[in-house]
Design a protein around this nucleic acid. Structure first.
Lengths: 239, 239
DNA sequence: GCCGGGCTGTCACCTGGGTGACACCCGTAT
DNA sequence: ATACGGGTGTCACCCAGGTGACAGCCCGGC
């Protein structure tokens, strides 16, 4: 049964022993989702907590009146949502969408809370997991405030192409990349083209297939040069 | 002893009974800091965890090469840092600076981890606290990606002038406000002047002294109007 | 084969807001 | 009284990147 191995590999269950895992699994119900469906809205964050078995899910904050939205986390197998509601039991203004076909294991939030309360290792894992999510969104915030879009895109690629396969970004359309760095499709397209010309990435039909780690790293650290007017002039035309 | 009441009021200790609080207090050492001092650097996040007794502290991510920095959290009495390192025991790329005179209670990170492990209520409070911090930085991220600077400033003010006194923003220089919304002093000055002219805020020597809740709220929800070209033209000249 | 949906490449246009600079103001230490 | 440090108001300049639009491509279903 593949669901069990999904549990075993999830960072949310590291340290939980095998018999317990099997016991928990019995209380989880499997769900299957098509791509581009909404798995959860703001209201739903208090109902069930879900663990991703396979496929990819984005957690977005779709804002206010104009349609723009920001992807806060890109989740894959082993990830769970919504963590924030799990931690404090309050509603959370986010929604979850499937990017690919997705299978999940779900249980009511109250059930998970109970597990957290009685299973020490699970509780510990939850601490580490929420810290990881904090770090991710904090990184995103920093990027948004302090870097230009091409640096943000470079950082995004570097974060995901660190050798871990399969890559969560694989074959994602440019619109999704844009939503992850707070930009728009057109700009991402422009920046990717530029990066390819500079040999930083290999593209295939507009989606990123490979990166040149060294060059991208240099790019990511280069934004001072971009910001300082002197330096920009010094390094020649920008066309 | 005022330190004890500080513990009692801290969200990190809600649910911990009085005798236990006194016991913990005995293991905490008091520290005093002058304004504008660095209480903690990236390296220090693994050494001691600190609880703020009085004064205000900012947690910043000062980035890369140019001097720009972003304030991730503005902390006051009852807050603790660094939470992320406390949760997963890894180093954290942030630093902490005092904005006012500050008194803290400190203990080595390992001691706190032990408390978390053995004191159920403390552990629960930590969950809720980290969730709160997650929500804050998530809000900041969303603002940065989806709103213009004046909307972000309006949101910042609304978040802090919700009646809770004393206000953490009180008398903070414009530079600090700017660091909290990912902008720069000049722009904050311009926006504040505009807001005062529109009757949204009352200023006193450049710092915010009062707000008109209703008008600010309207402003905060108005950014569609700002973004849509039609609407902008429709509402007349913009200076 | 043909159609349609969803993707990418690319353009001209325009503006929010960052940059750097300066003047001025006030409170404190010398 | 003087000087200075840190704050605010305000300006002219300019560019990164968002907007909206169009064309062209690929692929799967009929």
């Amino acid at each position: 049964m593949p669901s069990l191995t999904a549990l075993r590999r999830s960072p949310l269950f590291t340290g939980v022993d095998e018999p317990t895992l099997r016991r928990l699994l019995a209380s989880l119900s499997e769900e299957v989702w098509e791509p581009r469906r909404q798995l959860m809205g703001p209201a739903g964050s208090l109902e069930r907590f879900r663990l991703i078995v396979s496929g990819r899910v984005k957690i977005v904050r779709s804002n206010s009146l104009d349609g723009r939205e920001l992807t806060l986390w890109l989740l894959g197998p082993g990830d769970g949502f919504d963590v924030v509601s799990l931690l404090d039991g309050r509603a959370h203004e986010v929604s979850a969408w499937s990017l690919t076909p997705v299978r999940t294991l779900a249980a009511p939030l109250a059930v998970w809370s109970g597990w957290l309360r009685w299973l020490r290792p699970l509780d510990l894992a939850a601490h580490r997991y929420s810290a990881a999510k904090l770090r991710e969104v904090e990184q995103l915030t920093t990027d948004l405030a302090l870097h230009d879009t091409s640096t943000r895109l470079a950082n995004l690629l570097l974060r995901h192409f660190d050798g871990s396969q399969p890559n969560l970004l694989h074959d994602l359309p440019q619109r999704e990349l844009a939503a992850m760095i707070g930009s728009v499709r057109g700009v991402v397209s422009r920046v990717l083209a530029r990066m390819q010309a500079d040999g930083m990435v290999q593209l295939h039909g507009g989606t990123v297939r490979g990166i040149d780690l060294q060059r991208l790293l240099r790019r990511a650290e280069q934004d001072l040069a971009q910001r300082s007017p002197r330096a920009v002039q010094a390094r020649g035309q920008h066309r």
